[in-house]
Amino acid sequence: MAKKFQELVKQFTTLRSYTREFLIYGFKSREEITLSSPRTYDNERRRLESLLHDYIESQTINNKKIYRLVLPANQADNPLHILWQTKSFTRNDIFLHFVILDILAQGSELTVNEIVQEIDDYLSLFDDNYLIDSLTVRNKLNEYTEMDILQKEKRGKQWLYTVNKKTELTTKQIQAIQFYKEIAPAGVIGELLLQRYEVSPSPFCFKHKYDSQTLDSEIMLFLLQAIKHNQRVKLIKTNGVEISLTPLKIYSSCESGRQYLVGIQTSRLYSLRLDYLESGQLLGMTENFSQGLTKLAKAKTTTWNCSFTSRKPVTYEILLHLPEHYLHQRLLREKRQGKVEQVGDKLYKFSIDLVDPKGMEPWLRTWIGRIVQVNSTNRTWENQFWLDIEALNQLYGLED
């Protein structure tokens, strides 16, 4: 008899990896994916279809079924938050969850032995001789205390357990959570918090929102904790490579939604994409945190993004024709550490010193049609830029 498929998961890492392979990076077939066995492939695909059935479209092309993740542009909530609500549990887990909360529901303060006695009274109603030992109950109580579901207080030689009271939130506080859970790191915490209340639909709608960032919330919280306490970490990448460094800051791209960790290792700055990191481990206090921040502050003056190199900075000057006022305002808003100077009627010169211009290219392409002239001593990059424009013109039949 075939094993029944279960929607629940034991490790979020597996679900996180398959979500990317299926729905973020583009759907991969059973033959293309190398994460695990074909059976695991089928189970994870069905699990994602079940969890995100309202947002997954399928289409058969050449006898091959293709899946797509379609997220509404005007939706205030992140559908991917539901992935954090999947977890496997045992018979003891599900029984103790409801029984313990029921026992303590009236605000009682009880010891472990008293709670065990109450549980035995529940079990006496069943005829299958089902028993739970006191150590299992104690471990569950401590687990719920760490999760802030319960609180414990020591009186004499015994610990007393009570249910944490639910904090009442005002309408403004609820709306603040509805806003920040979609734009702040680890916003899934706000999503889970709101599920404890009966709330009205969110009044917010976002023009640019990167739902897939929630897949990195766990590693994000780990790194923020390390940064707060000035600790070194050992990180394991998705390809199995390990790297040890001192984390300094987390960067989030407003263009692509990608998130990066910037850290220092033996006086050298590194940047790592969070979606390439699988797990981490704290290594203890670091001594080069302040040195790293100083080095990062200096490097930021000649980098467009998180691309740090030892090359000397080069000046890049871009002459732009901006007849509309809002374009000039946009240039001032997006120039980063660059400078903007008006050199003629509706002509503006944007200049910036960079060690690597590659990071600026996607932004620069958004000004195609407005660029009048590009000047730089980096002739290799400048020539390649214009070759790319010529290739684009040929692709669209605009070479004339």
Rank of each mutant, 00 (worst) to 15 (best):
L8R: 13
L8S: 14
T14R: 15
T19L: 00
L23P: 00
L23C: 01
Y25R: 08
E32N: 12
S36Y: 05
T40H: 01
L51F: 06
H53G: 08
I56K: 05
E57V: 08
S58Q: 13
I61L: 12
N63W: 09
I66H: 14
Y67R: 03
A76T: 06
P79A: 12
L83F: 06
T86I: 01
F89S: 13
R91A: 14
D93I: 06
L96E: 02
L101R: 10
L101I: 08
D102M: 13
D102F: 11
I103M: 11
L110F: 14
L110I: 14
T111P: 14
N113V: 13
E118F: 15
I119E: 03
D120Q: 15
F126L: 14
F126R: 14
D128E: 12
N129K: 13
Y130L: 09
L141F: 06
E143G: 04
M147E: 10
L150T: 06
E153D: 14
R155I: 12
G156E: 10
Q158N: 14
Y161W: 10
T162A: 13
T167N: 09
T170W: 11
Y180C: 02
V188I: 07
L192C: 08
L194A: 00
Q195G: 09
E198G: 04
F206L: 06
T214G: 04
S217F: 04
S217D: 10
I219N: 01
M220Y: 04
K228Q: 11
K228A: 11
H229Q: 14
K234Y: 01
L235A: 03
I236E: 13
K237Q: 07
G240Q: 03
I250M: 07
Y251Q: 10
Y251K: 09
L261P: 00
G263S: 05
I264N: 06
S271N: 11
S271Q: 05
L272T: 03
E278W: 02
E278A: 09
E278T: 01
G280V: 02
G284T: 02
M285C: 07
T286I: 08
F289A: 04
F289V: 01
L296R: 08
K298L: 13
T302K: 13
W304M: 01
N305L: 14
C306N: 07
T309L: 14
S310M: 10
Y316C: 06
E317P: 00
L319P: 05
L320F: 04
L320Y: 01
L332D: 11
V340M: 05
E341N: 11
L347A: 08
D353F: 02
E361F: 05
L364D: 00
W367S: 00
I368H: 09
V372K: 11
Q373C: 09
Q384K: 15
F385Y: 14
L387V: 12
D388C: 07
I389V: 12
Y396I: 04
Y396H: 09
E399A: 07
D400A: 10
